[in-house]
Amino acid sequence: MRFGIVVFPGSNCDMDCYHVIDQVLGHPVSYIWHQEKDLTGFDCIILPGGFSYGDYLRSGAIARFSPVMEAVAEFAAKGGLVLGICNGFQILLEAGLLPGAMMRNNCLQFRCQDVYLKVETNETPFTNIYRAGEVIRMPIAHGEGNYYAAPEALAELEENGQVVFRYCTPGGEVTTEANPNGSCNNIAGICNKERNVLGLMPHPERCAEEILGNTDGKKLFLSILSWWEGQRCEEVLGCG
């Protein structure tokens, strides 16, 4: 499976994602400069974390105009997997590939800490080897992770099962105290209706190795591989 990691000026988790795909998963991966327009040959595109264009305006507001984003939209429309982490999630929102918007954390400060997440659905290419309802631990590191969507849009997300991760207590309760940034409905990550585009604020690439003390994020990447194997199987056997 071939991964591409988009590098915007100011991306800074690109190397981390590269390391995990290359060294932990052992799959082919390359960087994609933000001015590229051709994504042929990739099976999964990652928009990594960081501060694209310094995030001096609104997170992701300028990056969405990078030439590569049109190609990403096309890639997603054809069913390709797109994973946006942190700033990548913010860019997906700005680009309209996912619904909603980000506001500053309600504490008005940057937050770098571990949080607990409830895996709300395992019916996505990104979560299929987690158990539905499983509680996992993942680091966050952001100043603008306060997810907002209008009430109707929020209801639609919930109805369609597009909320993939929710901030919770270690025991799995979704409470205000467990919400690190004030997100609507404790939302940490969502997917599109077609379920091939995922955006999340926490960093799975930061918890994919034993030496870092936590491997809960590795299962997200393994889910992608397992989904892709399944797809290939279908293609080869011609069964649907």
Binding site: M15, V20, G49, C112, A141
Partner: peptide, 14 residues
């Protein structure tokens, strides 16, 4: 103080 600093990026922090 340090929860305002990203202390994990570059995934080396053991």
């Amino acid at each position: 103080v340090y929860r305002q600093y990203d202390h994990m990026v570059l995934i080396n922090t053991v």
